[in-house]
Amino acid sequence: MLEGVHLTLMIGPAVPVPAPRVVMDALRSISVTSGKDRSGFQVTFAVGRDSPLLNVMLPAGYFDPITTRVLIIATVNGFPHVLMDGLVTQQELSPSNEPGQSTLSITGEDLSLAMDLVETVIPYPQVPLIARIRLILAKYAALGCIPAVIPTIIPVTEVATSGFETQTTTDRAYLKSLARRAGYVFYVEPGPAPGTSVAYFGPDIRVPIPQSALNIDMDAATNVESLSFSLDGLAKKLTVVTILDPVTGKVPIPIPIPNVNIFKPPLGLRPTAPARLEFNSDYAKLKPDKAAEKILGLLMNNAEAITASGSLDVVRYGRPLRSRALVGVRGAGLAYDGLYYVDTVTHKIKPGEYKQSFTLSRDGLISNTPKVVP
């Protein structure tokens, strides 16, 4: 592709294998989006009237949805980065009257899609939360999914005689509901080794080691093509929940829940103050342990007031920017310089070109660190 950049595309049922030469010659573009919730991809090929992709591979089921697994690896400066390990969900053929303009596109999602295909009804009497999660994830070990499960901060004990929980949705929907209830996140991250993925259930902890800084308006040191910032004064809110005292069960006690996440430390010296105030009385009907679990979930699912979006050239930046990690920003001025959380990253790969678009976020103005990693 480019000097210092090598692309590996693997396609196949269950265990993907390197794509044949005819497929790589027809490759036009690859787009991979990695976000906080799930990841997706789209691969586009140029096809003609006599193309083997159109006349042989497509009828033979080479690009069939669900059964076809796609693995995309970008090797930058000798270091491999697994961008996607997922399943095809859709194929689209766009014939054209113009020579060389007909395309075949395959679209898909990460391996968490396999957890969202079958709805099940499974009772869990006296089964702890962590055991439930591990039982569910064990079914996907054949796909290379490695579970990384962190116990909840406030354990909730249920007595079978007073009722027990029953799963009535798909595995992915159920795991996400459990994570949301505990203030955690659940996602499947491809890599680090090709053919493996990490199924993470735990708090939204961003990688503490910052990536190389994004430089804007710094002459020869500039490595970002575009970067813009936005501060939303309505993004944050203060929630007041009402619980009943544990002794009499009748006296209402209001508890203000600040917009602070203990697992995402503040990155700005001037946090944006909450502009909205909400009241919630549903917690008064819950047991103390379940109410505490939901309150903790509110603390961990707060919003960020400052967002940024931009694009960069990977060759100039030196490595692919990763989502769910920290990155520094330089050259934007005193108010917006400093560390940010990388929320989403979209890889855009074409012959002779590798670019990324990204979104960042943090909670306030003015960096709380004197210097970021260059």
Rank of each mutant, 00 (worst) to 15 (best):
I216G: 00
G331K: 08
G310E: 03
I243W: 00
P13G: 02
V56H: 01
S177M: 15
L214A: 01
L54R: 12
I262S: 10
S162I: 07
P252H: 01
K236M: 09
S212A: 12
A14M: 09
L321D: 00
L312N: 08
Y317M: 05
G100Q: 10
S31D: 01
F186W: 13
G310F: 00
A273K: 15
V329D: 02
I154M: 02
T152L: 05
P256L: 03
P123F: 01
A14R: 08
S361D: 12
I66A: 11
M115D: 15
G108N: 04
V76P: 00
C145I: 08
F358E: 00
L53A: 09
L58W: 15
P18H: 10
L326F: 10
S102N: 10
E3L: 13
P210N: 00
N301R: 08
T242E: 13
D110C: 10
D50A: 13
I257V: 14
G318V: 05
D37I: 06
L286P: 01
L71E: 08
P13M: 09
I306F: 09
Q126H: 11
P16R: 15
D50Y: 01
K236S: 11
P256M: 10
T103G: 10
L83A: 02
K371V: 11
A235G: 11
M218C: 08
V251F: 07
Q356K: 04
R270Q: 12
G183D: 08
A325P: 03
V32W: 03
V43H: 03
A46V: 13
P65D: 04
K237W: 02
I255N: 06
V241H: 03
P252Q: 12
A74E: 07
L58A: 05
L234Q: 15
L83S: 01
Y340C: 02
V329C: 04
I146F: 02
T67Y: 11
G100S: 07
I209W: 00
E278Q: 14
K264Q: 12
Y124G: 08
T152W: 01
K250L: 09
P16C: 12
L53I: 04
V247D: 14
I150A: 02
L231R: 14
L111G: 03
V260I: 13
K355L: 13
A221N: 15
T68R: 05
H347L: 04
P18D: 09
R362Y: 15
G61S: 05
A179D: 04
I133E: 06
A213W: 00
R180V: 06
L298A: 06
P265M: 12
T67N: 05
R276I: 11
R206E: 09
K36I: 08
D289L: 04
R180S: 08
V247Y: 09
K294Y: 09
E278V: 12
F201M: 11
I122F: 14
R172T: 02
P192Y: 11
V32A: 00
P271H: 02
L104W: 07
V260F: 13
I153K: 12
G331C: 06
R276E: 15
L137W: 06
R21P: 10
S51Y: 05
V373G: 08
A74F: 05
A308E: 00
A148W: 06
H347M: 09
S226H: 10
A213R: 10
P254G: 02
A303C: 03
Q356E: 11
